[in-house]
Design a protein around this nucleic acid. Structure first.
Lengths: 211, 211
DNA sequence: CGCCTAACCTACCGGGTGGTCGGTTAGTTT
DNA sequence: AAACTAACCGACCACCCGGTAGGTTAGGCG
């Protein structure tokens, strides 16, 4: 058969995925440093050695969790004029899933330390995010209307920073305000700087994930 | 004597402060979970038991570090119309001291987990910060000029979130932009919403610290 | 059926972990 | 000088850490 696996490995991949789910859950609650592989193993219903058969090191387990997040948010999303609105709606959707939100809040800070297993991953992620959002923003703002010294990248970094910073506030005092509403209101503040014609069509860039 | 200590405790307080300095340094580099009291002790030039004589638990050591930060940034700062400018300048000053900036970046995220020794401290800190900055902002904006649904607290949370979020970006890709410049530019965006008369005088509220 | 391999397990390893115990030393007070 | 006390140390504790070694089991396949 050219498709060698039909009913093969009934346990393997299934187990792998359930372990990843447990690891995501625990890393979300306590971060990477404060979780042991024994914790993940116990919650997954197997021994520590059994877990290490699927993921050879703790580091590999974390990277697998992050990689799966990447895979789960592939593909292009809305762009152009709808981008900002879609951004706010993506946040609203994510806020209904507080688990992943907290995962990224904890890991993005932990990974600031050099030598952290996820350091490079987050550096790359932010570089890509800034450049994507910059492209999107550039396609809808009118450069002539922007005050001096403010560029599309400046605005892009603001939007990303707001999503990150408001997330911290929302996690520390839940229910005090609505993060997506706040971001949406901010995007309204940007309206005077948008171009009025509709010539702004640019590359297809996805909605950021994990926020 | 009513002042019982003149030359007493030549070692005691001095040692305490030097241990706190070392702890601040290590927590800044790696966060709380990834640092052991043995690390702090070795770097301080004494044994682990010797360190635990001054700070009975690791938790107490962390709280002492945070408390010292509180003490180091007491007292009122500029307020009223100068507040926003002073905020940006405070950030510029702090960015020259990357150690404390990273300390707060790491701990504020770690402490999201309930049960973290600094959880309550950060919850209180953000509550106070939001309410202080809201007071300040309320004294300089003109409510009639604000779009519907946007209040002083909304703006205050934006400013705080920007400081936090841009800090993450600056730490992950150092040198890519200037955080204080970016914040300053954002405050310029807020200018259309400020009141033009000079009747806005409000309570004396200090500049936030540790950013 | 017998073989092979993935999926586990128990037992173990060296090296931390936060913290305790029972001292010894040195400087201060009386 | 004697008494007291803060500062500090070596030894030890029970437990946890990420990871390895070597074996057992079970299911798919020729």
């Amino acid at each position: 058969m050219s498709t060698p696996a039909r009913k093969t490995r009934p346990h393997g991949d299934e187990r792998r995925r359930s372990v990843l789910a447990v690891a995501t859950d625990l890393f979300s609650q306590r971060g990477y440093n404060a979780v042991s592989i024994a914790d993940v193993a116990k919650e997954s219903g197997l021994s520590q050695a059994g877990l290490l058969h699927h993921f050879p090191t703790k580091r590999a387990l974390l990277l697998a969790v992050l990689q799966e997040r990447d895979r789960a948010s592939e593909g292009p999303g809305p762009h152009g004029a709808d981008f900002l609105q879609a951004f706010a709606e993506a946040l609203r959707h994510n806020d209904a899933n507080p688990q992943l939100v907290q995962l990224f809040a904890l890991l993005s800070a932990e990974s600031i330390s050099e030598g952290h297993p996820a350091h490079d991953w987050f550096v790359e992620r932010y570089d890509l995010l800034v450049s994507d959002v910059t492209t999107e923003v550039a396609s809808i703002v009118d450069p002539d209307k922007l005050p001096e010294g403010i560029h599309a990248e400046t605005l892009a970094r603001w939007v990303i920073a707001l999503a990150d910073g408001l997330r911290t506030q929302a996690l520390l005092s839940p229910g005090a305000f609505d993060r997506a509403d706040s971001i949406e209101a901010f995007l309204g503040i940007l309206r005077p700087y948008l171009r009025t014609d509709d010539t702004g069509e640019s590359g297809a860039v996805g909605i950021p994930h994990g926020y």
